[in-house]
Simulated assay, not measured.
Amino acid sequence: MRDLSKDHHWLSINTATVRQQADFVGIVEACARRGIRAVSPWRDQVAHVGLDRAVKAVRDAGLQLSGYCRGGMYTCDAAHKQEMLDDNRRAIDEAAALGAPCLVLVVGGLPQFSRPGSQPSKDIRAAHAQVTDAIGQLLNDAKAAKVPLAVEPLHPMYAADRACVNTLRQALDICDVLDPARSGALGVAIDTFHVWWDADVWEQIDRVGKERMLAFHVCDWLVPMKDMLLDRGMMGDGVIDIPAYRRAVEAQGYKGFVEVELLSNDWWSRPLDEVLDTCIARYQTVV
């Protein structure tokens, strides 16, 4: 396992972590000042400043990307399917323009939540099928743009509204169906917050392989948690054995960035400098 204690060479900041403190350009500049070499932007933050300005900011700062958030929200009724496909093709194009190594997919839950206006459904099996079908339809677009797609399983508490893919096993099953040759065009993003509870995750990490391990995200699980979406913990403040997960993914050959992704009302209330400095310190001591 890599020794991260001496520097923060492989640290990346997911821009959601400080979305309330600065716009995308401000986040990029603050990261560059601290020698943080990579970011992972969210689409709404890029749209806020404009894609061209975002591309220039990343280039001028000499930063890399560890991913782009997010594609997906595939589940919808027939009336919204073309809108969904068009939106995801735009996400692929944006990721390519920014130089992202992958587009992270939050696949969607039930259609009325993923694509508002869709006819309500309680059929989670149909949602699973829609996810596989949509990724299959978009995979050639991603290959043409040279943007791998990273399926991110989310904690089951988000199954209805955000992602019906809730385990690494489910994500890898999709990869096996759509990309059995392991071309590198389709893989997974593993976030400690979403997988730490799953007793099967260790066997599934062994199944990933180097070509499918596209992104690794870290944060912690607080007890108690005040908000199921916006109370993620800074690494070291919760109950997740984060080094164990890093050891497992690096054993598969992963040598990429360790991406800090906090959605937290607490950390959003703190100064930008404090949050980034804490991310660096915890990356070096508890990740």
Rank of each mutant, 00 (worst) to 15 (best):
G72T: 11
T75S: 01
G62H: 09
I92G: 07
P148Y: 06
D123A: 04
A78S: 11
P111M: 02
A79G: 07
K81Y: 10
L103I: 03
L85F: 08
A126E: 15
Q64N: 13
R115W: 01
L63C: 13
S114V: 04
C76Q: 00
L85R: 09
Q130W: 02
R115Q: 14
I124Q: 15
P156Y: 01
G62R: 12
S118K: 03
S121M: 12
A95G: 15
A61N: 15
K81G: 11
A96L: 02
K143W: 06
V147T: 10
L139G: 11
A144F: 04
Q119V: 11
A61W: 09
P101A: 05
M84H: 02
A78W: 01
P156M: 01
H155Q: 07
L149V: 10
V147M: 11
R115T: 06
I124R: 14
L139S: 11
L85K: 05
T132K: 12
A126F: 01
Q112M: 13
M84F: 02
A95T: 03
Y74R: 06
V104H: 03
C76Y: 01
S118I: 00
S118R: 01
A127N: 03
C102N: 15
G108Y: 00
S118G: 07
Q137L: 13
G108L: 10
K143Q: 13
A96G: 09
L154G: 02
Q82C: 08
H80T: 03
G109F: 00
Y74P: 12
L105G: 00
D141L: 09
L85E: 12
Q119N: 09
A144S: 14
A134R: 02
L154C: 02
C69A: 15
L154Q: 08
L154D: 02
F113P: 00
Q119F: 01
D123I: 03
D86P: 07
K143E: 15
H155G: 04
T132M: 12
D133M: 09
A129C: 03
A144E: 14
G72P: 06
I92Q: 12
R125P: 01
D87L: 06
C76K: 00
G117R: 05
D141M: 08
P111T: 02
P116Q: 11
G109L: 04
S66I: 05
K146H: 09
L149T: 05
G117H: 00
L149R: 05
S66D: 15
A96R: 15
I92T: 09
A145E: 15
E94T: 10
L149D: 05
V104S: 09
K81H: 13
R89A: 08
E152D: 01
D77W: 00
V151H: 07
I135T: 15
G117N: 05
L65N: 14
